[in-house]
Nucleic acid binder design. Structure first.
Lengths: 122, 122
DNA sequence: TCCGTCCTAAACCGTTTGGTTGAATAGGAC
DNA sequence: GTCCTATTCAACCAAACGGTTTAGGACGGA
């Protein structure tokens, strides 16, 4: 089972309906009834989707009489952005080192004996 | 089934093992055998995880004799970052409008009759 | 109080997922 | 050719997912 937070959040967004709910909620809080009207599925199905978003921390439900306004916790998107950005950068830096090595080899062919200056390492 | 690309990519990252594979591959290509050594599960299970990443476009498999080096297609992370950033901004802008309205109301109380200037719309 | 509305709970169902084991395929080394 | 290694294929399984239907609970208004 997806026990960790990051997995739950990624999984929560791995569904078009749930992504649409999030998109919708950026425009403002809404009740289940209001949200459910936009989809073909049953109101209960939409409620389940909201529960998934809630367990991921992406959404909270308030209480106003019988109505339960749903609120987007937009800050919970940040861990995902951070993860993506981290590994995008890590991959990018590797390419840069690779390019440096290749440039070193190219320089080696042109001017043999001056290679080591380009060999960045850490 | 998750037919759309974005759903497949989010789903692919909604698993700790697969995220670890991606992290690992930012350091360089690797074969299935090399990768599988790091995990407790069977080699076939790791292969299945790679297939999931492959169907999401996050990874491609080369061919070098019997070995099939796995390569990370890091650019496929961008649509996710874009999606997250888009709706983070959209939510943020809404809060800014909300703040403007609230500031307008506060000004209203202090100086009744000058309200409309702060009512930004759309 | 009674009614209608809003939402949640629970049972059920078909499909997908994440793992297993066992067997098959294909290259490289000898 | 024969063997070893790297990978894939296939069958199977339990659990989770995404939906349904039916029922129930809680609040507000006439």
């Amino acid at each position: 089972m997806l026990t960790d937070q990051l997995s739950r959040t990624f999984a929560a967004l791995a569904d078009p309906t749930r992504r649409d709910l999030v998109a919708r909620l950026t425009l403002g809080d809404a009740t289940l009834g209001e949200l459910a009207g936009s989809y073909e599925m049953s109101l209960q199905a939409v409620s389940k989707h909201l529960t998934v978003l809630e367990r991921a921390g992406l959404v909270t439900r308030g209480q106003a009489g019988t109505r339960r306004p749903v609120h987007l916790e937009v800050a919970m998107l940040d861990p995902l952005t951070d993860w993506l950005e981290r590994y995008r950068q890590q991959a990018e830096q590797r390419y840069q080192r690779l390019d440096a090595v290749l440039a070193g080899l190219a320089a080696d062919e042109a001017y043999p004996g001056t290679a080591d200056q380009n060999q960045e390492e850490r």
